[in-house]
Each structure stands twice: as C-alpha cells, then as structure tokens.
Amino acid sequence: MTATIELDDLHVQLGGRTILDGLSGALNGRAIGLLGPNGAGKSTLINTLLGFHPPARGTARVLGMDIRQDARKLRAQVGYMPESDSFISGMTGLRFVRYMAEISGLPPEQAMERAHEAFFYVGLGEVRYRKLGTYSLGMKQLAKLAQAIAHGPKMLIMDEPTNGLDPPARQRMIQLVREIRDASDMRLIISSHLLRDVEETCEEVLILRNGRVAALCNLEEERRANRKFLELETIGANGAFSSALQQLGCECAVFTNGRMKVVMPDKIEIREVYRIAEQQGIQIRRMNHRRDSLEDIFLNAMEQTGAAHGGL
C-alpha cells in the first residue's frame, strides 16, 4: 500500500526563519494526527503538503505524489478544510459548495448533486439555501467540511476541525470524521492541538515540536500494547531513585516537578517502591495506576525534545 505521507528531510523556511527543520519519516495509517503545541509547525506542514509553501530542502510525498513535481495532481486528490474562516462572501452554503466542487473539476450538474448530498451528509441539509454569513461557527465548520468532501477526494486534510465548537458540535464533527474514515478509502490528516480529538479519530500520530519530529507512533499498536504503569508525584525524587527502581527491573521515565512514570514487572510489588522511597527520604504524594494514553506519548515526546533542545 502507498504510504499516506513520506517526509524526506523536509525543510521549510518562512520569512527568514526555519519552520520545519528536517522532517523525515513515513506514515501509513488511514487517519493521521498531527499534534504539537502552538508554533510547532503543524499548519506549516499542511500548507507545505498542499504546495502553499515551497520546501527549502528535501521533499515530501503524499499518496506517492511528490509535493514539488506532482503538486497539481496531488491537489486534485485532496480535500482541504482550513482552520480559519474561509468563505466566498454573499453566497448561499449550497452555491459555495457547488462552486468549490466545480473548481475541483466536477461538471455543473454533478457538482450541484454532490453539493446537496454533502450538505445533508454533514447535517446542514435544512440550511443549505441560507447565506454563509448567517451561519453559526459550528455550521461554518460543517460547511467547510462539506466543501472539502463534495468532490470525493482521496485524502481529506483537516486543520483544527473542532476549533470553536461546543461539545455537541464537536462530538458531531468527530463522529463524521470517524464515519468518513470507516466508510471510504479516503485517508485523513487531522491537525489539532486537542489530544482527545486525535485519539478518537486517528490511527497514527506525528508529534511536532519546534519544527522537528518529536514522536511518530502508531496509536493502534500502542493501544494493543496497552501497558499498565504507575504514575507518581514525588517530592525529592532524583536519579538515584529511578536507578534503584530500574535495578528492581522497572522502566522509569522522569518528568519535571518530581513526576515519574514507572512500568513495573508483574513480580514486583508496590511496597518495594515505598521501601526505596523511604530509604532515600523521598515523599510519594500521589500514586495512580494508569494505562498508556496519547497524552503520555505526547508529554513524553515534549519532555524528551524539551530536554534535547534546552526546554521550552
């Protein structure tokens, strides 16, 4: 199967600053999440994949198409739902989606038919003849989704699809994304800073930080591994404490402010942890049993790259 995205030492410079700094890796999932704090380079990566920004060095392939050489062919296969308000003024919702579908290459009759269908599909069928300017924020998000899928793209790129949505609208959007993912061959790229959105919809995650790949993981595999671990909040924990735990056979990850993640082998009991803490004069203020979540993966990636690059 063709990789959804292949990044090959991708560098992008904007306004004299390096925004994407040598991204490499391959993502094969049907639904890929782009995660990262604000300014990490998520939107720049999307814009680069769409051909809005030229790479300074390296390249990327989307669905096997090079973003430099096959830009036009690639854009014919893509539906894009931008983050910010993007509309044509003075148009009804239906006319807007029809217009966009025609620009994507659908003949007028088919574009009209697909625009009706897209509006009903996203749940805006009753308001499709209203002017876009009268839509609420949630309706505008759904209208943007309608224009992105009306022409039947092979890939849907969504930039912060749940931005500004209230909980029911967000749930509706997530449900739609999952339906699209499961009911078609369409690949999805979802950029978000909301971990829950990505966790609920994506199979693979690319985490960016300061324009670099902080982590690239397959959520499905992580879910399958589904390891239990202890989450500790301590006062005074140091390298000696984690070394002692490692000697017991535990895997340890140490975070800032005395937080630790400890994966314990089955034969080790929790009292051993308390014993070592007592010996070293360390206070354990909180202890939780947890399973790996995207949040852990994300925080771990942030901590690791933070340490590597001198922190935030």
């Binding site: 769409l50 014919a76 931008p82 509309f87 620009i103 994507s104 790129i157």
Partner: peptide
C-alpha cells in the same frame, strides 16, 4: 480568507 480554498484545488 478564501484563497486557500481556491489554491488547495487544481
């Protein structure tokens, strides 16, 4: 802000 909508198409 509709230019991205146009230019994300062929």
């Amino acid at each position: 802000g509709s230019l991205p909508l146009y230019l994300s198409r062929p």
